[in-house]
Every structure is written in C-alpha cells, then in structure tokens.
Amino acid sequence: MAKDYLGEFEELVLTMVAALQEDAYGAAIAEEIETRLKREVNLSAVHVTLYRLEDKGYLKSKMGGGTQERGGRRKRIYTITNAGLAMLKAMKEARLDLWKLVPQLKIVSV
C-alpha cells in the first residue's frame, strides 16, 4: 500500500498524540516537541499535519474543554485510532529491522 506512508514529521506528531493521550491538542503537541526534542516547530505545521493524519484515518478528534489561558476557546483533542497505532508499530518495526542490519561498531563521529 503505497499510500500508507508517513513522513518524518507526521510520524513524530502521531507518536506525540499517542503519548499525550487526553492532552493531545495542537498547542500542547507543539510545545512538547519543542521542549523534548529542542526543535522549533510552527503551530500551523502541527495543525496541518494533524488534519492530514485525521484525513488518512490514523487520528480521530473531538472537541474538548476550554481554559482561561485559551481565552475560553475549546481544544480539539486527538486520539490515535487502531489504524494509527498499527501504522506506528509497523513503522517502528520496519525501522528496527533496518537498524539490525547496521553494524553497531561502525558508529564513528566524523
């Protein structure tokens, strides 16, 4: 299935949704990526990726509650679907398989 392919950022976001569980919404995901991976991400990029993943059926969403900090606006809480989880697992395994092929001692800092 050629269609079922995830980009690096998509995989990252999908993983974050799975990890954050009840707290998985746009701003939180962006923040987590920034704090944990020390990687600058733009909010819009996260949103677009979330929508795309939802289109592909790896995520589903529902509206959650609002907070003071958000000016009362509700969050869209994402949860990973079975298909999403399966995809994530498949990708991880594929990567592990590949990883095993790499001779471990060859890691040299150039």
Partner: peptide, 11 residues
C-alpha cells in the same frame, strides 16, 4: 477556527 484560535491564544 475555534481550536486554532485557542491554540494561538495559548501560545
């Protein structure tokens, strides 16, 4: 609109 606006305000 709503969630994006909310995220932006939070940010």
């Amino acid at each position: 609109y709503e969630e994006i606006e909310g995220d932006l305000i939070q940010k």
